[in-house]
Design a protein around this nucleic acid. Structure first.
Lengths: 238, 238
DNA sequence: TAGAATACCTACTCATGAGTATGATGGAGC
DNA sequence: GCTCCATCATACTCATGAGTAGGTATTCTA
């Protein structure tokens, strides 16, 4: 483990974003930040895979091929670790809001853009942490912090909906309930999405956006008269 | 199970569904089932409130004013307890499907009926358990069982969507993605809904159904031209 | 080249909580 | 009265996992 010796991969050809910065380059480079991020990323992966409570810090350390105290060298405790994962995910969504802020498009278009990024974030390795970082598992202070961030996003969505209703790009509706429905559908992605899925997060988000936009009720005025009698459900009574 | 002696509360005047059957009536009545259900209900409440891993069986016992071995007298282990809570919730949804099975209405109407019950179940005390009973926390066998039940529900929704597309009551769409979106929005209720909310589960479900049905894009052909220039977002350029 | 940091490891402590062994109590039936 | 069985409590065991104490090696700095 004690290898001085100039490393050849100094000028970063870092293969994948997932490799362990420890064993990857034997000699100790002290880019603390790189390693710290690797810890957080590994934690996110583990939480995503096994859940917060079923992941021990030993597990995370093993993934990185180090020991538990090393993990504690980069992060103060397990709760902090979850919190950092949460932040990493939320930041993606906040960026989406910023990106859209000064666009001149109607609100529905801006909302769609945000939702697409939102969905991508949910399908990322931090999705689970954003969705499952619960008050229940966190100290009161951290719980408040997380709630505030979540609320900020919720309010952002509601605002876009209200603006859409005003500028006529969105059908009048209850902004609160609509925001809940939208966020719920997208949050749920974090529950079922696994990498190596055929669709990317962005594609899923797009599909959802299309569904939400159009609605289930047919738009074509043809409104085919419900021809229920076609159904073959007479069968065994009882 | 062997209750000889006519029980006075046979013809149920059960005050609230929440009272403890133990201390509530000091003398021991041996309706094992009633007590067992009380255990499960108490567990569901506790899981709902504090999460599975943050709830000890001592907690649950304390709620019922008994001790842990008493809980183990009615249920074999913690996992079983979670599973029973899960079942209680899922059964409500399965009942909804059965109820709708032989209706002569167009598929969209049947779907709406199912979704309303679905939403109610999610707002019930078993909602959390249905949504959060994860593979991660369960033995492989139980995990398979739960997955099968979830899949059954998912497939049921997809089938209704397909039927709706066929009978013309639902706009053509991807049944799988649409089912995910619907279920996601409704499942999410279990995360944020708390009793003493102003809306009931059924009302929330109805609101969601309306949103899903109509879609965000305005239906009135008036299609107000996106008058984006109205917006006042020129401000500080970075 | 001698400290002084930095980065990491071995080997603990210690609380928590699931699950159990065993025994007490009290009513039912004879 | 005695026995059986259902019900419940006391008082454990035991594994797990968060977090730490203290030491070692490597690199930086003067």
């Amino acid at each position: 483990m004690n290898s001085r010796r100039a490393s050849p991969l100094q000028a970063g050809k870092l293969p994948a974003a997932s490799a362990s910065p420890w064993r990857a380059s034997r000699e100790r480079r002290r880019d603390r930040e790189v390693k710290r991020e690797a810890v957080i990323r590994a934690a996110a992966r583990a939480f995503n895979h096994k859940g917060y409570h079923n992941t021990s810090l030993d597990d995370i350390a093993a993934t990185l091929e180090v020991t538990k105290p090393t993990v504690y060298y980069y992060v103060s405790n397990k709760e902090q670790l979850l919190f950092q994962c949460f932040l990493a995910g939320v930041e993606q969504i906040r960026a989406a809001f910023r990106e859209v802020k000064d666009l001149e498009a109607p609100a529905r278009e801006r909302l769609k853009a945000v939702l697409r990024h939102y969905g991508e974030a949910m399908a990322s390795e931090f999705g689970w942490c954003m969705v499952r970082a619960e008050d229940q598992d966190l100290s009161p202070a951290m719980s408040r912090h997380i709630k505030a961030l979540k609320s900020e996003i919720d309010q952002g969505i509601r605002r876009l909906i209200r603006e859409g209703i005003q500028d006529g790009s969105i059908e009048p509706c209850d902004p609160k309930m609509t925001a809940f429905a939208l966020a719920g559908a997208l949050n749920w992605i974090a529950h079922w999405y696994r990498e190596n899925q055929s669709l990317t997060g962005a594609e899923i988000a797009s599909a959802f956006v299309t569904i939400f936009e159009g609605g289930l009720r047919p738009r074509s005025a043809s409104q085919v008269a419900p021809r229920a009698p076609l159904r073959r459900r007479v069968r065994i009574a009882r």
